[in-house]
Measured scan of single mutants.
Amino acid sequence: QVNIAPGSLDKALNQYAAHSGFTLSVDASLTRGKQSNGLHGDYDVESGLQQLLDGSGLQVKPLGNNSWTLEP
């Protein structure tokens, strides 16, 4: 069960990665100043990332080996 409060997208993504045990490689300029609506409930990694990114204009991309990145 994930419980991440709304706020900074950077912070939300870092909390989610730490909670879910995956690696997220992101260029900080992509997420700077963006906000997230947070995340509450049970999600697989990709669904949770998509939910956190909702409205940010960013997309999640798998890199393999439980690693992910973001792209515009």
Rank of each mutant, 00 (worst) to 15 (best):
P62V: 09
V26A: 09
T69F: 09
F22I: 15
T23C: 14
F22V: 11
Q50D: 07
G38M: 02
V26R: 00
S56A: 07
Y16V: 02
Y16G: 03
P6K: 08
V2M: 08
Q51D: 04
N65M: 08
K61N: 05
L39K: 01
N14Y: 13
S36P: 01
V26L: 09
P6H: 05
S67T: 13
V45G: 04
D44F: 04
K34V: 08
S29Q: 10
L24Q: 05
Q50R: 15
N14A: 15
A28S: 11
V2A: 08
Q35W: 15
W68I: 07
G7M: 12
L70E: 04
D54W: 14
G7P: 00
S56H: 10
G48P: 01
D44H: 06
T69V: 12
K34E: 06
N65D: 11
L49W: 06
Y43C: 07
F22W: 00
P62G: 10
Q15E: 15
G48K: 00
L70H: 04
Q35R: 13
A5S: 11
Q15M: 11
L53A: 06
S29P: 04
W68H: 04
D27M: 06
Y16T: 03
L39P: 01
A17E: 02
K11W: 15
V2T: 06
R32G: 07
R32D: 10
S56R: 00
S25A: 11
N37I: 09
K34P: 04
A28I: 10
G21L: 03
T23N: 11
G33I: 01
K11M: 12
S25F: 15
S56Q: 06
L58H: 00
Q59V: 14
A5T: 07
Y16K: 01
K11Y: 13
F22K: 06
G57F: 05
H19R: 08
G55S: 04
R32P: 02
G41E: 01
G55I: 04
Q59K: 14
Q51F: 10
S67V: 14
P72N: 07
T69C: 11
S29G: 10
V26D: 06
V2F: 10
L63M: 11
T31M: 08
L9M: 04
A5V: 06
L13C: 06
S47Q: 11
G55C: 09
Y43T: 03
P62D: 12
K61T: 07
A17F: 05
L30V: 07
L63F: 07
L58P: 01
D54K: 15
L9W: 01
E71M: 11
N37H: 10
V26T: 05
N65V: 09
G7Q: 10
L70F: 06
Q51N: 07
R32S: 11
T23K: 09
S25C: 15
A5I: 06
N14H: 13
D42L: 14
L70C: 08
L24W: 06
Q35D: 08
G48L: 05
S20Q: 13
G7K: 03
P72K: 09
Y43I: 04
H40F: 13
T31W: 01
S56W: 04
A17S: 07
S47Y: 09
Q1P: 12
S67Q: 12
G41K: 02
L52P: 00
V60R: 01
G55E: 03
S8K: 07
S67G: 09
S29W: 11
D44E: 08
K11S: 13
N37A: 12
Q59G: 08
S8P: 15
Y16D: 03
D27G: 03
L39A: 04
Q35T: 13
E71Q: 08
P72Y: 10
F22G: 06
D42H: 14
Q50P: 00
W68T: 04
S67L: 11
Q1I: 13
G33C: 13
Q35I: 13
E71S: 07
L53R: 00
H40A: 10
K34W: 07
L39W: 02
N37K: 14
D54V: 15
G33E: 05
E71N: 02
T31G: 03
N14T: 13
P62W: 15
L70N: 04
E46S: 08
K11T: 13
N65W: 07
R32C: 14
G64K: 02
G55K: 06
Q1S: 13
N66K: 06
D27T: 06
L53M: 04
S67R: 12
S67A: 12
L49T: 00
N66T: 03
L39D: 02
G7F: 00
D54L: 15
A18K: 13
D42M: 14
N65I: 08
V2E: 02
G57V: 02
H40I: 14
V26P: 01
G57M: 04
L53N: 00
S25G: 05
G33D: 09
A5D: 10
F22H: 05
Q1W: 15
V26N: 01
A18N: 10
K34H: 08
L70I: 15
N37M: 12
S25M: 15
G64H: 03
V26Q: 03
N3V: 12
N3H: 14
K61F: 08
Q35L: 14
L70T: 04
L13D: 01
S25L: 15
L58R: 01
Q1K: 13
